[in-house]
Nucleic acid binder design. Structure first.
Lengths: 202, 202
DNA sequence: CACAAATGTTCTCCTTTTGTTCTCATGGAG
DNA sequence: CTCCATGAGAACAAAAGGAGAACATTTGTG
């Protein structure tokens, strides 16, 4: 069983690998966790290795290999065909062997939940009033992430997170009519990170 | 067998595990129950362990393991909890009996397919370049629908359909930089109607 | 190749948090 | 009245979390 910090460490590594194709450095992990000690991070890595989640190539930079390649405990759901291009002139038809997208796999995971967006603070990023967003529960987030955050334990807002050099954070809306607001780090409590958005018409 | 509070405690633990994949801390349980004493919570846990519902890893943080493994929801289905509001101050938690959204149900149907949007013609409606859209195959559409259409059997475009009094149709982009284009009805071939849109981050 | 910087590894020390075990108090039901 | 479920909270041991020094290797660069 993993501790909170070990879990966050593993999530960050998985995220890093998924997005960039290689593992992070200890220093990057520490920075993501908001701590300064590489030694502490290394302790977490040892625990993760003991639990069978990663393998460490001793001594090597970025020598973390992700094992256990995620047992998808999400049952496969119904799929829709993904059409790359619509053939000119011909009525659209599903081509056998075409790519299929499984919406469940796409969105569902443990530690995620759905929120209905209220307001237009992120409208210039294409997130409209009334849209649904999928949020992954997480206490830490990186610069540039879109987060659900509480300020002074008040109502939750959806904003882009900007980490400033002096340790403060700025919550940046995607709406020219609204101004970015800067806070000391203690006042901002991150509840989760935006992983997807969807909307129904009709 | 169990008292009211023990039952509530067990329900909360089960919910927590189902939604996050790990057990809550005594403090979190206490907060959920509206009490302040971890000692009292611990008494409930002892009772639950004696009744065979959980196993406690002594001393460990989050060291509660659910036994009696619930039958049906072992495989987390295609649903995500829908949270209406985020409780001020408290970490987000799924409220039992909360709404659940089934993503497959939400999007999938026969006669539908997915397209990746190219270009920014509908950007002011929140449909960005690279977004995925779910389209329902249909040859006819109503005034105001967003449609996938071919003009002169040429490349497909995503536009809002406007039916004019004289029988012509206008394809209206949601982008100030682009102009609506008017065609005779024969030149416009409707391939389908937009029913949903989604987008993944990270 | 040689060297400096960066990275990973190990270690000790420390603070905070968590779980655990108590005792005491309260209030309702039988 | 007693029984019992419930809660508060003190006290303590252990776990979790973090800092940082010291060292070994790797990595990158001229």
């Amino acid at each position: 069983m993993l501790t909170d910090r070990e879990r966050e460490t593993l999530a960050y590594i998985a995220d890093h690998v998924a997005n960039r194709g290689y593992a992070p450095k200890l220093r990057e992990i520490a920075e993501h966790l908001g701590i300064r000690s590489r030694g502490t991070v290394h302790r977490y890595l040892r625990a993760l290795q003991a639990a069978g989640h990663i393998r460490i190539s001793r001594g090597r930079a970025r020598g973390i290999e992700l094992l256990h390649a995620e047992d998808p405990d999400v049952a496969p759901g119904h799929t829709l065909p993904l059409l790359g291009r619509i053939a000119a002139g011909h009525p659209i038809e599903a081509i056998p062997g075409e790519d299929e997208v499984d919406l469940s796999q796409f969105f569902v995971d443990v530690n995620r939940f759905v929120l209905r967006v209220q307001g237009e603070s992120m409208i210039e990023d294409g997130i409209m009033d009334g849209d649904m967003v999928v949020v992954e529960r997480r206490a830490v987030a990186d610069d540039g992430d879109i987060v659900v955050a509480l300020v002074d334990s008040d109502e939750a807002t959806l904003k882009r997170l900007q980490r400033n050099a002096d340790g403060t954070v700025t919550l940046v809306p995607a709406n020219r009519a609204m101004t970015p607001l800067r806070y000391s780090a203690e006042r901002v409590q991150i509840q989760g990170v935006l992983v997807a958005q969807f909307r129904a018409y009709r």
